[in-house]
C-alpha cells in the first residue's frame, strides 16, 4: 500500500464508510500519473485507455465484472488461481464476451483451498503464471469500469500479483456491489436496528436472493463475475437512477 497516494490509502482503509467522499475524483489524475511512470508495456496500454469522468452517468459506461478465486484470503501469502471477466453495460450482459483464465499459484495449493474453489492441483499444474495472462486480462479491463463483489480481494490480490511479477502496483477505480449492498442495509431505520433485526448477509449469493436473482453454482470465477454483473444491474434498477454519476459509485 506504500505506493498509494496518501489520500487514496486513507480512503481505502475506510472504504466502507466514505464511499461518497470527494477523493474518488482523484482517480483520473492518479491513473494519468501511473501511465506516465510505468515501465511495463501492458500496464501502459491499460492506463492509456484511461478512465471516465466521475460525472459520467452509469448507463453510458461500458463495464466489466471481475472475479478472482484465490488460495486463501491473505494477499501476502496466498495467490490467484483463476480470473473471470464478464464485460457488460447497464442494459445488457453478452455472455459470449466473457473470458476466463486459470493461473498457476505462486505456492503449492493447500488441500483446504482446493475444497474452496474446486480447482485441483492438476488443473493448475499446467496453468500459465500470472505474468503470462496479465496482458490479456488487462486488455479486457481496459476502457471499462471494473465491477467486483468485495473490493478487497480483487484489488489487493491484483495489486500484490502485479507487484510480484511486474514490480509495479496495479490499482484502478472499482464499483463494489458488496459496498452498495452494505450501504443499503446500513440505512435501516434506527428502530428496526433497535428491535434487533439481524444484519443481512452481504455475500454475493444471499445479496442476489434479495433481488430475486437465481442461484448459481458458487465459487467459479466466471459464474461469480456473471453473478456480479447481474447484481449490479439489479442494484442500480432498485436503488439508483440510470444517470447516477459513476463518481458516486466507484471507489
Amino acid at each position: 500500500m506504500r505506493d498509494w497516494p496518501q489520500r487514496l490509502q486513507k480512503h481505502y482503509r475506510r472504504w466502507q464508510w466514505h464511499r461518497r467522499g470527494k477523493l474518488v475524483s482523484e482517480w483520473p489524475a492518479y491513473l494519468a500519473d501511473r501511465q506516465s511512470k510505468t515501465r511495463d508495456e501492458r500496464l501502459a496500454h491499460y492506463f492509456a485507455a484511461g478512465t471516465f469522468d466521475p460525472q459520467t452517468p452509469i448507463s453510458e459506461v461500458p463495464m466489466v465484472a471481475l472475479d478472482i478465486e484465490t488460495t486463501g484470503l491473505d494477499p501476502s501469502r496466498d495467490s490467484i488461481v483463476s480470473i473471470g471477466v464478464q464485460p457488460f453495460t447497464l442494459g445488457r450482459i453478452p455472455v459470449a464476451q466473457s473470458s476466463y483464465w486459470t493461473v498457476k499459484p505462486r505456492r503449492a495449493l493447500s488441500n483446504r483451498s482446493v475444497v474452496y474453489h474446486r480447482l485441483t492441483h492438476s488443473d493448475l499444474a499446467n496453468a500459465p503464471r500470472f505474468d503470462k495472462v496479465v496482458g490479456e486480462v488487462l486488455e479486457q479491463l481496459a476502457g471499462r469500469l471494473v465491477v467486483v463483489h468485495y473490493t478487497r480481494i480483487e484489488r489487493e490480490f491484483l495489486n500484490a500479483a502485479a507487484r510480484h511479477y511486474l514490480k509495479e502496483p496495479l490499482l484502478f477505480p472499482l464499483i463494489d456491489t458488496m459496498a452498495i449492498e452494505a450501504y443499503q442495509h446500513r440505512r435501516l431505520p434506527w428502530f428496526q436496528r433497535l428491535l434487533g433485526r439481524r444484519p443481512v448477509s452481504l455475500r454475493l449469493h444471499p445479496s442476489r436472493e434479495r433481488y430475486n436473482l437465481p442461484a448459481y453454482q458458487a465459487h467459479h470465477a466466471l459464474i461469480d463475475a456473471l453473478a456480479t454483473a447481474e447484481l449490479l444491474q439489479a442494484q442500480i434498477a432498485r436503488h439508483y437512477a440510470p444517470d447516477t454519476p459513476i463518481g458516486v459509485l466507484w471507489e
Partner: peptide, 14 residues
C-alpha cells in the same frame, strides 16, 4: 443459443 444469449435484469414494474 447458450453462447449467444444476452442477459438483462428488470425490476418489478418496469
Amino acid at each position: 443459443v447458450a453462447t449467444r444469449v444476452e442477459i438483462s435484469y428488470f425490476q418489478a414494474g418496469t
